[in-house]
Nucleic acid binder design. Structure first.
Lengths: 350, 350
DNA sequence: AAAAATTTCGTGTACGGTAACGGAATTGTG
DNA sequence: CACAATTCCGTTACCGTACACGAAATTTTT
């Protein structure tokens, strides 16, 4: 815990009879060193347990490495804004260590805007990239390019299967669906459940809710095989339509008592719910958006499964920092992060 | 987000026509500067929005500040071990920035050992102190001394009321008791509830569970005024006695269906519970100790309220770092941190 | 074996700030 | 007015590392 008299680069130089310049070349293996000297330096480094002084290093480096973050434009109060908080927090941490962060935004409903952002990002030649892969093919192009230039990249939120990413930080999607079902606290097997789903956005090409739904359905068939689960589909931008859908659904199935939603938009059905109290027992959704939290506080929503996009993205940035600056690979490649259950009684301090 | 061309001390020197030595004296108001020069420098500093480079500063200062942490000795797997993790994590963060952390341990059942640790701590003349005040009077002596030497200190876990602490990081105790009651998910007002409490340790002089219990009782009387709540007291080191207590309690009150405990020791009653299944519906405790988590995974414990002592202590260290190195006071003095609900379905990734 | 090419290495300076030291400017005293 | 005492300020040497540049050592070529 206590760092006593740390050895410096000069100590190593003295002990090896070489100069600090040479030691520095070894440390950054940037060549121009004979094998003999190299080995000697490495030996002494290991013996002394030398660790470079990050302060001095960052100071001397001067021109700071830059971590680029690719993130959709978003309305205030959306899921991505939570991530944005994490980015600011992380860059406050790594900023004083001489690392910049730069945002590249794109329109999440426009594949060409994503392309465009990718090009801008690549042109800027960052030292590392954080990306939530929304557009499969587009992301693949991006990552292929990054690999060819050996720029490290980290996924968060959604993972994409390629073998080049440095790390992934996200939710265990299947478990989260399972947990969601558990939080409905269904009491008898005759219950009827409604899943509110988003009309598939034809542009979004990777969708974590699919796996969440799988976890949910498995829980149901394991615990309440006789439960009826039905779905409706809504358009996030057409509130009137949404209300109509709900209205006619509940006319058709008035026995429905539980509602779940696997994305962050549970707030979309809140207005309708608050005009029609009574029969609904439990409503469970995802993510601690402000709108969701408010509904939770009022009791309209019973529980939220909160992933922490801010933590996820912060971890992603941290991982890149460790890799770029300190040369350390993350311990695990796939990092499934914890999720929390929020109720009206524990949201106050979020 | 991007740090563009920050002004340096040399820029100020040039613009004022003075030397960086003088500017430095102004920055640390260490005198030997004429009023005229002082004002000129201050004006330019404000105009440029100059902020000293923390890196270079720490590097040049050389002697690293040291943060002392006062913490009880503990068995592996206890509450305090969680805190210890946070300390290592935090010191990994601030370590490369030239700040040391040093632990001072004491025996939590021995007030004089606490005293002793305090003296050792004071002798070491740290730059800042983190402490969880277990012994009221002892802590007051400590903090009085710290104040007189103007060494900043931060509380975590428990707060003590004096007006000198830099910050506090801990749980909203009252709310946590309230939440605990909610998590019992009592279904009918005729339920009978058992609180398992620790025989008051005569040495420990500040006890967060008192307030938790208050929150719990308030929830109960608000929601289920007819519920019967009874208590038993156990000795954490006498397992046989504990089992006997439980045994005779349940003989006397076989209708009891819910159990809660307000400290981290719910694992103490797990062995008995697992030998007597059946009537107990829900068991709720605090803190994610390994033993508790295991019981949670097996379903013996229904839910745990997890505070995050690691995060709390990490924040505490961070706050001291910000204050000592960067000269920034924490935004809030009292920081009530979030608590999470853990169930068997979301503990996997903790 | 001398010259050229290449590899290997040491030196010097910069990064932004700290603080000791001593010289110049100002003020005070006889 | 000369001299001492203060006050003020510039110079300089660091802190530990990065990197450019050129010199030295080694290898290759002729």
């Amino acid at each position: 815990m206590i760092q006593s008299e740390k050895p410096t680069i000069m100590d190593i130089a003295r002990l090896t009879g070489l100069s600090k310049g040479t030691v520095d070349r070894v440390l950054h293996n940037r060549g121009e060193v004979s094998k003999k000297s190299y080995d000697k330096v490495m030996a002494v480094i290991k013996e002394l347990g030398y660790e470079p002084n990050a302060l001095a290093s960052a100071l001397a480096r001067g021109v700071s490495p830059r971590i680029a973050v690719l993130i959709p434009e978003h309305e205030p109060g959306s899921f991505w804004e939570l991530a944005l908080n994490g980015i600011s927090k992380a860059s406050e941490t790594v900023g004083p260590l001489g690392v910049e962060t730069q945002l590249f935004k794109y329109n999440s409903r426009d594949a060409s805007s994503f392309q465009d952002a990718c090009f801008r990002l690549l042109d800027s030649a960052p030292s590392g990239v954080v990306v939530a892969p929304m557009f499969g093919p587009g992301t693949q192009m991006l990552t292929a390019d990054l690999r060819s230039r050996s720029i490290p990249y980290v996924f968060f939120d959604t993972k994409q299967d390629d073998d080049g990413y440095l790390a992934y930080y996200g939710l265990p999607e299947y478990r989260s669906g399972y947990l969601c079902a558990d939080q409905l606290t269904i009491d008898k097997s005759a219950s009827e459940v409604l899943l509110v789903r988003i009309k598939r956005d034809p542009f979004r090409q990777s969708d974590p809710t699919v796996i969440r739904r799988a976890g949910f359905m498995d829980y149901m068939s394991e615990h309440y095989p006789d439960c009826v689960v039905r779905s409706i589909f809504i358009d996030p931008r057409d509130h009137e339509r949404t209300d109509q859908e709900l209205e006619s659904f509940f006319e058709a199935f008035p026995g429905t008592t539980h509602i779940a939603m696997f994305n962050s938009r549970i707030y979309l059905i809140v207005p309708w719910l608050e005009r029609h109290p009574a029969q609904i027992k439990r409503v469970v959704g995802f993510d601690n958006l402000t709108a969701n939290m408010n509904a939770l506080a009022r009791g309209t929503v019973s529980a939220l499964i909160a992933q922490h996009p801010d933590e996820q993205v912060a971890m992603a940035i941290q991982a890149l920092f460790d890799y770029i600056v300190l040369g350390k690979k993350p311990m695990r490649r796939d990092n499934f992060m914890h999720m929390d259950i929020l109720t009206r009684y524990n949201i106050e301090y979020y």
